[in-house]
């Protein structure tokens, strides 16, 4: 084998590594999500509705769940939980209502992103219904009470007796496109002639 051939072969191998590592950089994105899903260390909850069926309610245990709301920078909506703290039994179905109001003069679209702390608890928070599953449109000046229905998995580790669910509301109007396609199902009916 000549020197030039040996060099070329080696360069090809190294270039393959380079492209492989470039791909690996992007592969880190799904890997990160899988890793967080499996270990639950990121405090992300499932983005699909859980099914609630024949779960034994553990009356002997009481878990405190706290709800915090915030809006992202530049998001003008009012956003608060109607109940900020509740004691629940694992396995029991509960509902919390969240109030939103769009004070802006334009119709807007919002997306709520949940985060649970400690992150571990996210694996045991099952939501049968949540406003965070979908983008929420709201006309200018409109308000809505959005429900979130959940139960805590009785498998919740013994050492967790208190956890916090935080929702951050993001303005996604720009990426949502047409605003009129879907009215908000939770919207409070508006008086006809404005206010």
């Amino acid at each position: 084998m000549t020197q030039a051939n040996a060099n070329n072969k080696m360069v090809i191998k190294l270039v393959v590594i380079v492209f492989g590592m470039f791909g690996f950089g992007f592969a880190l994105v799904p890997l990160y999500d899988v890793f967080c899903d499996v270990t639950g260390i990121n405090g992300k909850t499932e983005n699909t509705a859980a099914v609630y069926e024949s779960i034994e309610i553990d009356e002997s245990r009481e878990v405190t769940v706290e709800f915090i709301t915030r809006t992202n920078t530049g998001m003008p909506w009012e956003f608060r939980a109607q109940t900020t703290r509740m004691k629940v039994h694992p396995g029991e179905l509960n509902t919390v209502s969240f109030y939103v109001r769009n004070p802006a003069s334009t119709n807007m679209m919002a997306q709520a992103i949940p985060s649970v702390s400690p992150g571990m608890a996210a694996l045991y928070l099952n939501k049968t219904e949540c406003f965070c599953f979908n983008q929420q449109p709201l006309n200018a000046g409109a308000e809505a009470y959005m429900p979130m229905q959940f139960y805590v998995d009785p498998q919740l580790p013994e050492d967790i007796s208190y956890f916090t669910v935080q929702y951050t509301l993001f303005d996604v109007t720009a990426r949502a496109g047409d605003m009129k396609t879907k009215p908000n199902p939770y919207m409070v009916p508006q008086p006809e002639s404005g206010r």
């Binding site: 590594i17 380079v18 590592m21 880190l28």
Partner: peptide, 21 residues
């Protein structure tokens, strides 16, 4: 050669996040 491509990936993601939605 192991990590510079990862940096290239990171800046590319920043670029597409900022300009391409």
């Amino acid at each position: 050669i192991a990590v510079m491509p990862v940096l290239a990936g990171a800046v590319t993601m920043v670029l597409t996040d900022k300009f391409f939605g």
